[in-house]
Amino acid sequence: MTLGTFLALLGAALSVGLAGIGSSIGVGTAGRAAAGVVSEDPDKFIKCLILQLIPGTQGLYGFIIGFLALLKINVFAGVSQLSLAAGLGMLAACLPMAISGLFSGIHQGKVAASGIALVAKKPEESTKAIVMSAMVETYALLGLIASFLAVFLPNYAAMV
């Protein structure tokens, strides 16, 4: 394996890993709030669960970028030998998703936790809580799109 391929794999790993960390922290924060509300009123379980789930998407986005990077490196059928420049390029391409996923996951979790508090008081307003936490996700989506285009469009294998 060349150093370039290693760097590209590192990019994929960071994308899956960091975005996953962001999501797990976010889902964890929201989950603690949800458990508190459900202990008072078990009927609110589904509404709380939906809000808890929302910060989980960053992890999925990170996984998508990681998976596409693996496809590009061709790990499923004989690994491509990337040049150093190509590997660095792929690593850089994965970073928008990794970073935006990490931080937006954490902060979306906080908004979702507050949203769960909103559901505890006014369950009929749960859509508003969902939309508020979706605001944070915009930036993870932008990271996803930037990484997607950067990973997917260039022909890294041909790069010298």
Partner: peptide, 20 residues
């Protein structure tokens, strides 16, 4: 207008996860 990029992002998500 850029905010509508999410249409593309979410469309991608379904497709790629399904592929995986």
């Amino acid at each position: 207008i850029l905010s509508y990029a999410r249409l593309f992002g979410l469309g991608l998500t379904t497709g790629v996860i399904g592929m995986v």
